[in-house]
Write a protein that binds this DNA or RNA. Structure first.
Lengths: 151, 151
DNA sequence: ACAATTAATATTGTTCGCAATATAATTTCC
DNA sequence: GGAAATTATATTGCGAACAATATTAATTGT
């Protein structure tokens, strides 16, 4: 009889593409934690700062579009960042539905310290072809985002 | 003066390898949700079932080692799965520190329905070289897990 | 044998992440 | 110009995910 360990079993954990992505994300998040803690940021908060350091101000919606997160996630996260003094939140006078997110001086200054983060994370052996891997996952993200938006 | 938009800025969001992994995981989780809901499973619960369908019973520790999760995550998750009737939890009589996790009949039967999950998720266009991508991410996971354990 | 150490899991507190829903402002369309 | 539809954000409720700590059982050293 067929067992659950057959090579062509579609449910083998090691055949799931999703699982290594899930595991890598958890492991990376665990690695970023101690590095970002001295900056007073969590990993998703760090991503918000990366976006704001590139372009500021942004609306909640534009941040969500860039990071693939919705307001249910962003609103409380941004409130915590506001309480920590990193960002400002205010209604757009021209369209009161929008909330405009900007950097405080403290938030802008934090960029200097954050410059060390990437190399700190990458210290130690970096796997072969990490650049190519990044590009492949970016394509996957684009495809998933496109398919999700159509569904 | 140097702006934050320079091509070699280490803080550009699009240069971060971590971000596409994070985004892909979120997008995939969002896609699995509706597919798994009829089975009464969340995505991490589905992963636990995949492991148990391969080999049963398992301890909390062996599940955590396989999925790169600790007891703080697994204990409440397994309790919810027990409450849902998918699994059993009991102390190992030979070593009362261990909690042994097994499948109920309902949990075993669920495998039939789960057989359709992978193809349902993969329906639609699959990106070029998805196999190779899986292997690359698996290598990254192995490296990260190794480095984290040594730290 | 028994105190000290180690191992396995559980608990607590905080922060995501999302679906579903609610609220309020703006556009559209007649 | 005003009702209806749309847009943008917020709220609620639930399920992860993890650090730090606690609890209990097994193992080790003397």
């Amino acid at each position: 009889m067929a067992t659950s360990r057959e090579r062509d079993d579609p449910l083998l954990l090691d055949r799931q593409i999703c699982f290594p992505l899930y595991a890598a994300t958890n492991l990376l998040n665990r690695r970023y934690g101690p590095v970002l803690r001295p900056l007073g940021l969590t990993y998703p908060q760090y991503l918000v700062m990366l976006v704001l350091w590139e372009e500021e101000p942004q609306t909640v919606g534009s941040l969500g579009a860039r990071l693939y997160l919705d307001s249910g996630t962003l609103t409380p996260l941004l409130k915590r960042m506001e309480a920590a003094g990193h960002i400002t939140r205010s209604r757009d006078p021209d369209d009161e539905r929008r909330v405009v997110v900007g950097l405080t001086e403290k938030g802008r200054a934090l960029r200097e310290q954050a410059l060390h983060v990437p190399e700190t994370i990458a210290s130690g052996r970096t796997p072969e072809g990490i650049e190519e891997l990044g590009n492949s996952v970016r394509k996957l993200v684009a495809l998933l985002a496109d398919q999700n938006s159509k569904a």
